[in-house]
Each structure stands twice: as C-alpha cells, then as structure tokens.
Design a protein around this nucleic acid. Sequence first.
DNA 1: CGTTTTTGACCCGCGC
DNA 2: GCGCGGGTCAAAAACG
Length: 155
Amino acid sequence: MDFSHQNPNYTFFPENLNPMPDFQLSDYLMLDDGILDDHDAKYKNGVGKNKSELGVRVALRMKSEMDVIDDGYKWRKYGKKSIKNSPNPRNYYKCSSGGCNVKKRIERDINEKSYVITTYDGVHNHDTPSLLYYNQMPLMAPNAWTLQPSSSSTT
DNA sequence: CGTTTTTGACCCGCGC
DNA sequence: GCGCGGGTCAAAAACG
C-alpha cells in the first residue's frame, strides 16, 4: 500500500502503532481516487474543480463493536439515513469546529456486521482538539520529533 | 444557557 | 411529474 498520497490532515496510523487497542484495525482503504460509490461519481462530475479541493475522501474499514470511534476531533451528528440493501443506518457527522466543514459518515458493513466503515470527507483546517492527548503518547507524538529542546548555544 | 441529538421534512438528481 | 435513494436542514428535546 502506498502512503505517499495520504491526506496531510489525516493521521494515518500503521498497524504497529494502533493508538486504539479497543478494536483491531484489520483493513485500510485509502481512496486516492475519491470514488467509493455513485454518489462520489456525481460529486466528482458535478464540479469541475480539482478533486483535492472538493474534498479528500478516505474510508477505513475496521472491526469494532462501537459504532462511532473517537478520532480526536469533535463531531456533531446532523443526519441519519437508512440505506437501501442494508439493514444498518448510516450516520452523518460534521466537524463542529467553526469554519471547518469536514464531514464523516459511519455505517456498519452490510455483510460483516462486526465491521464499521468510516468515511472521512474533506480536510480539516485546524488542529486536533486533542493534540495534548496525542502528545502524551510517546510513540506517536509528532511534536516530540520536531520540538527538540533546541540546545541553545549558551556556549 | 449553550451545545448536541433526534427525527421528520426537505431537497436534489435520476429513471420511468 | 412522480417516486426513490441519498444527503442535509432545522426545530425541538435532551444534556451538562
């Protein structure tokens, strides 16, 4: 799998750095193309813009008993729909940070009900509200690498 | 009292 | 035009 094109505002955790031991990440889907279903096709056709401006779409499929996974951002639910051919509803969330219109949708896998599909739609224009939380994790604190104690030349 | 959930209504594109 | 499928809005309720 190629990670070179990952969404810069999305933290991709390799499996050996799984930050959330409560469930097992079993499958990653990075949709560089941005097309998951016919809605995406419309999405892409309708506007003649660069698709990366329209919104990067990333889907994760993971095994989880929880429906909604706390990924560090604060989401406000704004809709729920039942999907044809699926007994499971689909939930729509929007990032509750002002000015940030990132959306995500969460639904259970149609066939394997122990899987949850989370689709992120867009790019955050702000930091994770829980950056402090992540900074407590030595393994994945990005700032720990960049914020070196800058040994000032106190000669 | 401000924020979030809930839930039906509304809207839009598409096929008939 | 109408119904269907899917996405969003918004008013009221619930929550802290």
